[in-house]
Protein backbone atom coordinates (compact mmCIF):
# COMPACT_ATOMS: atom_id res chain seq x y z
CA UNK A 1 0.00 0.00 0.00
CA UNK A 2 1.17 3.56 -0.65
CA UNK A 3 1.32 6.09 2.15
CA UNK A 4 0.13 8.97 -0.04
CA UNK A 5 -1.23 8.89 -3.58
CA UNK A 6 -2.12 12.12 -5.33
CA UNK A 7 -3.80 12.07 -8.72
CA UNK A 8 -4.54 14.93 -11.06
CA UNK A 9 -4.77 17.61 -8.38
CA UNK A 10 -6.11 21.02 -9.34
CA UNK A 11 -6.00 23.57 -6.54
CA UNK A 12 -7.00 27.22 -6.55
CA UNK A 13 -6.66 30.18 -4.21
CA UNK A 14 -9.86 32.00 -5.06
CA UNK A 15 -9.63 32.48 -8.79
CA UNK A 16 -5.91 31.82 -9.23
CA UNK A 17 -5.29 28.33 -10.53
CA UNK A 18 -2.13 27.09 -8.78
CA UNK A 19 -1.87 23.31 -9.25
CA UNK A 20 -2.43 21.96 -12.77
CA UNK A 21 -2.96 18.25 -12.41
CA UNK A 22 -0.27 17.26 -9.89
CA UNK A 23 0.20 13.52 -9.37
CA UNK A 24 2.71 11.90 -7.04
CA UNK A 25 3.12 8.86 -4.82
CA UNK A 26 4.84 8.39 -1.49
CA UNK A 27 5.58 4.71 -1.03
CA UNK A 28 5.43 3.27 2.45
CA UNK A 29 8.72 3.22 4.31
CA UNK A 30 10.48 5.44 1.80
CA UNK A 31 11.65 9.03 1.78
CA UNK A 32 10.20 10.95 -1.13
CA UNK A 33 11.26 14.51 -1.84
CA UNK A 34 9.41 17.20 -3.72
CA UNK A 35 11.69 19.88 -5.13
CA UNK A 36 11.01 23.08 -6.98
CA UNK A 37 11.78 26.76 -7.01
CA UNK A 38 9.97 29.54 -5.15
CA UNK A 39 6.31 29.71 -6.02
CA UNK A 40 6.27 26.36 -7.83
CA UNK A 41 3.31 25.17 -5.74
CA UNK A 42 5.01 22.85 -3.25
CA UNK A 43 3.30 24.29 -0.18
CA UNK A 44 -0.02 24.36 -2.00
CA UNK A 45 0.38 20.65 -2.77
CA UNK A 46 1.04 19.93 0.91
CA UNK A 47 -1.94 22.02 1.98
CA UNK A 48 -4.13 20.08 -0.41
CA UNK A 49 -2.89 16.78 1.01
CA UNK A 50 -3.59 18.03 4.55
CA UNK A 51 -7.07 19.28 3.67
CA UNK A 52 -6.13 22.88 4.52
CA UNK A 53 -6.67 24.10 0.95
CA UNK A 54 -8.72 21.26 -0.55
CA UNK A 55 -8.23 20.52 -4.23
CA UNK A 56 -11.07 21.37 -6.56
CA UNK A 57 -10.32 18.43 -8.84
CA UNK A 58 -8.36 15.23 -8.48
CA UNK A 59 -7.99 12.81 -5.59
CA UNK A 60 -5.81 12.34 -2.55
CA UNK A 61 -5.52 8.85 -1.11
CA UNK A 62 -3.78 8.22 2.21
CA UNK A 63 -3.12 4.62 3.24
CA UNK A 64 -5.79 3.57 0.79
CA UNK A 65 -8.53 5.95 2.04
CA UNK A 66 -9.82 8.69 -0.20
CA UNK A 67 -9.35 11.83 1.87
CA UNK A 68 -9.74 14.57 -0.76
CA UNK A 69 -12.61 16.35 0.99
CA UNK A 70 -11.82 15.40 4.57
CA UNK A 71 -11.18 18.07 7.22
CA UNK A 72 -7.54 18.30 8.31
CA UNK A 73 -8.06 16.74 11.70
CA UNK A 74 -9.43 13.52 10.21
CA UNK A 75 -6.52 13.32 7.80
CA UNK A 76 -4.02 13.89 10.60
CA UNK A 77 -5.78 11.28 12.72
CA UNK A 78 -4.96 8.67 10.06
CA UNK A 79 -1.36 9.16 11.16
CA UNK A 80 -0.17 12.07 9.05
CA UNK A 81 2.37 14.25 10.87
CA UNK A 82 2.66 17.72 9.37
CA UNK A 83 5.56 20.14 9.84
CA UNK A 84 4.22 23.22 8.07
CA UNK A 85 6.17 25.86 6.23
CA UNK A 86 7.37 28.50 8.68
CA UNK A 87 7.01 25.97 11.56
CA UNK A 88 3.78 27.44 12.86
CA UNK A 89 4.57 26.70 16.48
CA UNK A 90 2.16 28.24 18.98
CA UNK A 91 3.96 31.39 20.18
CA UNK A 92 1.77 31.93 23.25
CA UNK A 93 2.26 28.39 24.58
CA UNK A 94 5.32 27.01 26.36
CA UNK A 95 7.45 24.38 24.63
CA UNK A 96 5.94 21.64 26.74
CA UNK A 97 2.41 22.92 26.08
CA UNK A 98 3.11 22.96 22.35
CA UNK A 99 3.95 19.28 22.67
CA UNK A 100 0.64 18.54 24.37
CA UNK A 101 -1.53 19.94 21.60
CA UNK A 102 -1.36 17.06 19.08
CA UNK A 103 -3.79 14.18 19.16
CA UNK A 104 -2.47 11.35 21.32
CA UNK A 105 -2.35 8.48 18.84
CA UNK A 106 -0.89 5.37 20.40
CA UNK A 107 2.69 4.57 19.40
CA UNK A 108 6.31 4.74 20.41
CA UNK A 109 6.65 8.53 20.68
CA UNK A 110 6.18 10.27 24.01
CA UNK A 111 7.29 13.59 25.44
CA UNK A 112 10.31 12.05 27.26
CA UNK A 113 11.35 10.36 24.02
CA UNK A 114 11.23 13.55 21.94
CA UNK A 115 13.23 15.27 24.69
CA UNK A 116 15.82 12.53 24.23
CA UNK A 117 15.92 13.28 20.52
CA UNK A 118 15.97 17.06 21.09
CA UNK A 119 17.67 17.73 24.46
CA UNK A 120 17.57 21.44 23.69
CA UNK A 121 13.77 21.38 23.89
CA UNK A 122 13.86 19.90 27.36
CA UNK A 123 16.17 22.67 28.53
CA UNK A 124 13.73 25.21 27.17
CA UNK A 125 10.50 23.45 28.03
CA UNK A 126 9.14 26.32 30.12
CA UNK A 127 9.97 29.00 27.53
CA UNK A 128 7.24 30.33 25.32
CA UNK A 129 7.30 29.32 21.67
CA UNK A 130 8.03 32.89 20.61
CA UNK A 131 11.23 32.94 22.68
CA UNK A 132 12.85 30.12 20.69
CA UNK A 133 15.46 30.53 17.95
CA UNK A 134 14.65 29.42 14.41
CA UNK A 135 16.44 26.11 14.86
CA UNK A 136 14.68 25.41 18.15
CA UNK A 137 11.35 26.26 16.58
CA UNK A 138 12.03 23.79 13.79
CA UNK A 139 12.88 21.08 16.32
CA UNK A 140 9.72 21.87 18.23
CA UNK A 141 7.64 21.68 15.07
CA UNK A 142 9.12 18.27 14.18
CA UNK A 143 8.78 17.02 17.77
CA UNK A 144 5.15 18.13 17.82
CA UNK A 145 4.42 16.19 14.62
CA UNK A 146 6.17 13.10 16.01
CA UNK A 147 3.98 13.11 19.10
CA UNK A 148 1.03 12.28 16.88
CA UNK A 149 2.89 9.01 16.24
CA UNK A 150 2.66 9.47 12.49
CA UNK A 151 2.86 6.71 9.91
CA UNK A 152 3.82 9.32 7.35
CA UNK A 153 5.58 12.61 8.01
CA UNK A 154 5.19 15.63 5.74
CA UNK A 155 7.84 18.34 6.12
CA UNK A 156 7.60 21.64 4.25
CA UNK A 157 11.04 23.23 3.94
CA UNK A 158 12.36 22.29 7.37
CA UNK A 159 15.79 23.80 6.59
CA UNK A 160 14.46 27.22 5.61
CA UNK A 161 16.37 30.04 7.26
CA UNK A 162 18.56 27.81 9.43
CA UNK A 163 22.34 27.92 9.92
CA UNK A 164 24.23 25.24 7.92
CA UNK A 165 25.15 23.22 11.03
CA UNK A 166 21.55 23.05 12.14
CA UNK A 167 20.46 22.20 8.61
CA UNK A 168 22.71 19.11 8.81
CA UNK A 169 21.02 18.11 12.08
CA UNK A 170 17.58 18.51 10.60
CA UNK A 171 18.41 16.35 7.56
CA UNK A 172 20.00 13.72 9.79
CA UNK A 173 16.85 13.52 11.88
CA UNK A 174 14.59 13.35 8.83
CA UNK A 175 16.68 10.43 7.51
CA UNK A 176 16.45 8.78 10.94
CA UNK A 177 12.68 8.95 10.83
CA UNK A 178 12.65 7.01 7.59
CA UNK A 179 14.91 4.42 9.22
CA UNK A 180 12.38 4.21 12.06
CA UNK A 181 9.86 3.04 9.47
CA UNK A 182 8.01 6.34 9.04
CA UNK A 183 7.26 7.21 5.42
CA UNK A 184 8.44 10.74 4.64
CA UNK A 185 7.42 13.40 2.14
CA UNK A 186 10.06 16.12 2.24
CA UNK A 187 9.56 19.44 0.48
CA UNK A 188 12.83 21.29 0.03
CA UNK A 189 14.75 23.91 -1.87
CA UNK A 190 17.97 22.49 -0.54
CA UNK A 191 18.30 20.18 -3.54
CA UNK A 192 21.62 18.43 -2.97
CA UNK A 193 21.05 17.51 0.65
CA UNK A 194 17.52 16.32 -0.02
CA UNK A 195 18.68 14.08 -2.85
CA UNK A 196 21.37 12.65 -0.56
CA UNK A 197 18.82 11.24 1.87
CA UNK A 198 15.82 10.68 -0.42
CA UNK A 199 14.83 7.48 -2.19
CA UNK A 200 12.65 9.09 -4.82
CA UNK A 201 12.34 12.62 -6.13
CA UNK A 202 9.78 14.77 -7.88
CA UNK A 203 10.30 18.22 -9.33
CA UNK A 204 7.43 20.66 -9.44
CA UNK A 205 7.36 23.74 -11.63
CA UNK A 206 4.49 26.14 -12.21
CA UNK A 207 2.04 23.74 -10.62
CA UNK A 208 3.07 20.74 -12.73
CA UNK A 209 5.32 17.75 -12.07
CA UNK A 210 8.18 18.10 -14.56
CA UNK A 211 10.39 15.29 -13.35
CA UNK A 212 10.00 12.04 -11.41
CA UNK A 213 12.63 9.39 -10.74
CA UNK A 214 14.97 7.78 -8.22
CA UNK A 215 16.80 10.38 -6.15
CA UNK A 216 20.22 8.94 -6.96
CA UNK A 217 19.55 9.33 -10.65
CA UNK A 218 18.56 12.97 -10.34
CA UNK A 219 21.57 13.61 -8.07
CA UNK A 220 23.89 12.64 -10.93
CA UNK A 221 22.14 14.92 -13.41
CA UNK A 222 23.97 18.15 -12.60
CA UNK A 223 22.38 20.05 -15.47
CA UNK A 224 18.88 19.15 -14.40
CA UNK A 225 19.55 20.13 -10.83
CA UNK A 226 20.77 23.51 -12.01
CA UNK A 227 17.89 24.20 -14.32
CA UNK A 228 14.87 22.61 -12.62
CA UNK A 229 15.26 22.79 -8.91
CA UNK A 230 16.25 26.38 -8.32
CA UNK A 231 19.90 25.85 -7.53
CA UNK A 232 20.31 29.59 -7.17
CA UNK A 233 17.90 29.60 -4.29
CA UNK A 234 19.95 26.84 -2.72
CA UNK A 235 23.17 28.77 -2.97
CA UNK A 236 21.45 31.71 -1.42
CA UNK A 237 20.41 29.54 1.51
CA UNK A 238 23.95 28.26 1.98
CA UNK A 239 25.32 31.75 2.21
CA UNK A 240 22.73 32.93 4.66
CA UNK A 241 24.14 33.88 8.07
CA UNK A 242 23.35 31.79 11.13
CA UNK A 243 19.73 32.06 12.30
Amino acid sequence: MNAIEIEGLHTYYGKSHILHGVSLTVEEGRLTTLLGRNGAGKTTTMRSVMGLTPAREGTVRIFGRETTRWPSFRIAALGVGYVPEGRRIFPNLSVEENLKVPLERPGPWSIPRVYELFPRLQERKLNRGRQLSGGEQEMLSIARALLLNPRVLILDEPSQGLAPLIVRDVFRIVAEMRNEGISVLLVEQNVRMSLEIADYAYVLDDGMIVHAGPAAELARDEERIQSLAGATAEEWHEKEPAA
Binding site: L52, P71, S72, F73, A76, Y82, F90, P102
Partner: peptide
Protein backbone atom coordinates in the same frame (compact mmCIF):
# COMPACT_ATOMS: atom_id res chain seq x y z
CA UNK B 1 -5.32 28.66 23.65
CA UNK B 2 -3.38 27.40 20.63
CA UNK B 3 -6.49 27.59 18.47
CA UNK B 4 -7.08 31.23 19.33
CA UNK B 5 -4.01 32.10 17.25
CA UNK B 6 -3.85 29.25 14.74
CA UNK B 7 -6.82 26.93 14.50
CA UNK B 8 -5.64 25.42 11.18
CA UNK B 9 -2.46 24.10 12.74
CA UNK B 10 -4.37 22.67 15.71
CA UNK B 11 -6.57 20.87 13.19
CA UNK B 12 -3.56 19.64 11.21
CA UNK B 13 -2.30 18.07 14.45
CA UNK B 14 -5.34 15.82 14.57
CA UNK B 15 -7.60 17.77 16.91
Amino acid sequence: RAGVLDLDTVSALGI
